[in-house]
Amino acid sequence: MAAIHPDRSAAAPSAGGGGGIRRRLLPAVRHEEIALLGLFLLVAAFFAVAVPSARSGGTYLDLLRDAAPNLIAAIGVTLLLLAGEFDLSVGSMLAFTGVVTVSTFNATDSMWLGIVAGLLTGPLIGAINGYLVTVQGMNSLMTTLGMLFALRGLVYVWTNQTPVVDENGFSVFTGFYRGEIARIPLPGIIALVLIALAWLFATRTEFGRNIYAIGGNRTAARVSGIRVQRNTFLLFVLSGTMAAIAGVLVASQTGTGYFDAGVQGFELIVIASIVLGGVSLSGGEGNLLSAMLGVLILGMVAKGLRLMGAHTTQQLVVTGIVMLLAVFLHGVRQRMLVESRRRNRA
């Protein structure tokens, strides 16, 4: 079995004794996507039965559009989580990037300069986070929590809590979010392309495979010659960049630099979706595609409940229960796999 996935098993030797277990769990990792896809279909089927309007194919294309910012931000956060680090600053990044983008529109009257400036906030903030965590040795959860407050506060001070309006009214920019190719929404296409690239990166490059080793056992990874610091730093830059792309998309959707974009716990929703997708919060376990399915499942639940006209109270309670159920089932499935393997060996 390991031979089918040489890419994953490459991470194993560096993780010492844990590597053997991981190799045996490969089918489980593989089945994770299928199990989650099943869960997604179950959720979709439920709403299709319950709400007539959820039956049209357009609903799922809309879902891809609505979930695009979450999917894109989740790519970077997932890779960091796999390496055992947190990035809580992505929610505030949505606002920061948007404000930088539209402010640059207004200052330069150039749409492209604005987009470039907006996208550059990603590597910039990512590099600051990465520097503080890797060079200064600061805890990533605390560092990015500090960054979450600091960035949001900076945006508040800067904008005086008023949305930055695009004075030029770039219709190409605002049209982008609603645009589509062959009925597939442009934001969704960007998300899918980025997911594909990230998946290739995580599974087909040495750097990507090392992520698991770093997250699994940092010291062992360092001993086996992986440049842990450098790689972690780059992952922070990547996470910042993904958040910035999501931020530019939200700016395109809203046509403004909105100071409160993502303030309703965007970072927590992203992390919850990823964990729902089977990624461990302590690093080294999980995979990107499952994490993306986790984002889509929570997105579908939210959309379905809205289509049903569920009240906020019901939405909150149901969302909480779905999260618990999904993570519980993930645990049960993993334990069953371990159990069956043990029995096979006996």
Partner: peptide, 26 residues
């Protein structure tokens, strides 16, 4: 997302924006 989901299904849409500027383009 909600206003776009609702719009095709009803005759009249009443809407309170979370933020008026940021809802304009949609």
């Amino acid at each position: 997302a909600a206003v776009q989901e609702v719009a095709p299904q009803v005759d009249v849409i009443n809407f309170t924006p979370v933020n008026e500027e940021a809802s304009g383009p949609t």
